[in-house]
Design a protein around this nucleic acid. Structure first.
Lengths: 256, 256
DNA sequence: TCGAATTTGTGCGTATGTATC
DNA sequence: GGATACATACGCACAAATTCG
């Protein structure tokens, strides 16, 4: 008689408000399911549903055997996706993390492969030759302060890098230096840059790698680096939307 | 004994695969709850859970009284967030939609208000004076081909626009022209531009306004327009991640 | 036009497994 | 080991919307 909204929604809204006002600070324990049943006079199914929604919204974390807790929201970090760091040395990620006073690190695995069609299109590759590999595919897991925070799969055409000292991104004298710097070494200065940003729910694998609950919202970036009108590298980047904001900016040319 | 994964997850994965391979094409009807119970030998609760997950993942749409259907995924549209359209006339949104051959339209409501603190910070406003309004707040619902596709809340400091012919964004000779063009009219050329991109689950209100199922993933943009080092406008933009990709690009200066 | 069958959404009660405290 | 708490699972009931004869 109170309202026409579902019971579980009212409970969700009750806790949403308590969390947003700070009445329930991060880390605070929410009532257990039996407690919710008593306090709100609802059944177990309703308490369950409400808890699941709060968790799926990222407001709470459920710990079996312990309780359900208000999620401590790490401050949203801004990732500056601009190019004025072009002539710095070292990886852009490391520079960004250093600027925030965080410790950067990454794991990677590289292997040559034949590019799938979607990547072929982005790289401007022609038809594949037999099953000859034509790209170097490198998977990265980037970490900040020991926490995994970003996934990236990078594709470089072997056409460009084969036989050069930078053929393997993370080996040799230019290891860990970032794509732009490495390409410059072999005479392919990156002079154009394009990022396509989207968002979706993370796959189970992505959530696991990033130590996030299943179904977390992820930002996706398709990055393309060009050198003299030719694509020198492309990457698929995935990062948790609850950790990062992406910052793009441009100064307008006067006439343009 | 088959696996240690939850029953509902196995059912979800079953349909996920059928959908991704096209075996279940967009618009196809999924089995009803009783059918799933029979086919998989599970209880009603499991069938329910599986259906809810498929819907929350955006793979299916549930129609009460009718059935659950594979969601027809509209092609992802790219929104170019760059500034080379600076000297075009008319609204950027209208131009973008026109370029895609779609019909653009928008509703709006404007009113003066006292800016909340987060907006004050972005606009660089000082302490509020009593409860005097100091911004014009305009809420937009943008539509393409009659479908709502984007929400935007725009904030303009009255300090700048008060008493000018463009004080009301959607009235007078410069109605519907876009912020940059309007600001230029009163001698505040937009010369810097910054967007902060994030993603999250849409609120119930946002999902309703955008005719999307509850809990859809949304892209969020915080846009700031500056004129001579001063913020002339800021906007909060929300758009469904299953409809749009955002495209940012930059040509690197040679030396930078 | 009307009514019956179907289907989803919501809600209740109970039981078992497993992790935490 | 015992109590507590969450995750999973079974079975049932009813309301509202849709479909179709």
């Amino acid at each position: 008689m109170d309202s026409d909204r579902p019971l579980w929604l009212r409970i969700v809204e009750h806790f949403r408000q308590q969390i947003s006002t700070g009445e329930l600070p991060p880390g605070a324990r929410l009532p257990s399911r039996p407690e919710i049943m008593r306090e709100f006079g609802v059944s177990d199914a309703v308490a369950k549903q409400a808890a699941r929604v709060l968790v799926s919204e990222g407001l709470a974390v459920a710990k079996p055997g312990s309780g359900t807790y208000v999620r401590s929201k790490p401050q949203l970090q801004r990732l500056v996706r601009a190019w004025y760091r072009g002539n710095r040395s070292g990886s852009p990620f490391a520079a960004e993390m250093e600027a925030q006073g965080r410790r950067a690190a990454w794991d990677y695995t590289s292997r040559t492969a034949q590019a799938p069609t979607s990547i072929r299109e982005r790289l401007g590759l022609g038809e594949p030759t037999g099953d000859l590999p034509d790209v170097l595919r490198t998977e990265y897991v980037f970490s900040a302060d020991g926490q995994p925070v970003m996934l990236s799969t990078s594709w470089e055409p072997l056409e460009i890098t084969r036989g050069t000292p930078i053929a393997m991104p993370e080996e040799g004298p230019h290891a860990g230096r970032g794509v732009a710097e490495r390409m410059l070494v072999i005479g392919h200065p990156i002079d154009d840059w394009r990022e396509t940003v989207g968002a979706r729910l993370g796959t189970a694998e992505e959530c696991a790698k990033l130590a996030h609950p299943q179904g977390s919202v992820m930002l996706t970036i398709e990055r393309v680096y060009e050198s003299r009108g030719r694509v020198a590298e492309t990457a698929d980047i995935v990062l948790p939307a609850d950790l990062y904001l992406l910052e793009y900016s441009a100064r307008m040319g006067a006439g343009e």
